[in-house]
């Protein structure tokens, strides 16, 4: 039981940072699109790549949580 709790903590704490990062990235991208609507396409592409890079951290936490549960 306590092992599963450790996995939940790893996932929960580990997803705070990526959530903030993704939120900031999307907020800035929306600001930029609002200022320059014609550049929406390229901005979206770069934004998705940035989101993926930030999300990878949460995925590491997820993989660690799996490692805690399944070993």
């Amino acid at each position: 039981m306590d092992v599963k709790f450790a996995a939940a903590l790893a996932m929960g704490i580990g997803s705070i940072g990526p959530a903030l990062g993704i939120g900031m990235a999307v907020a800035r991208a929306m600001e930029a699109i609002g200022r320059n609507p014609e550049a929406a396409g390229p901005i979206q592409g770069v934004m998705i790549v940035g989101i993926g890079l930030a999300e990878a951290v949460a995925i590491y936490a997820f993989v660690i949580a799996l490692a805690i549960i399944f070993t």
Partner: peptide, 13 residues
């Protein structure tokens, strides 16, 4: 590691 773990984690999740 980052490329493979991202895809694996998302699919398994």
């Amino acid at each position: 590691i980052s490329l493979s773990a991202r895809l694996f984690g998302n699919l398994y999740g």
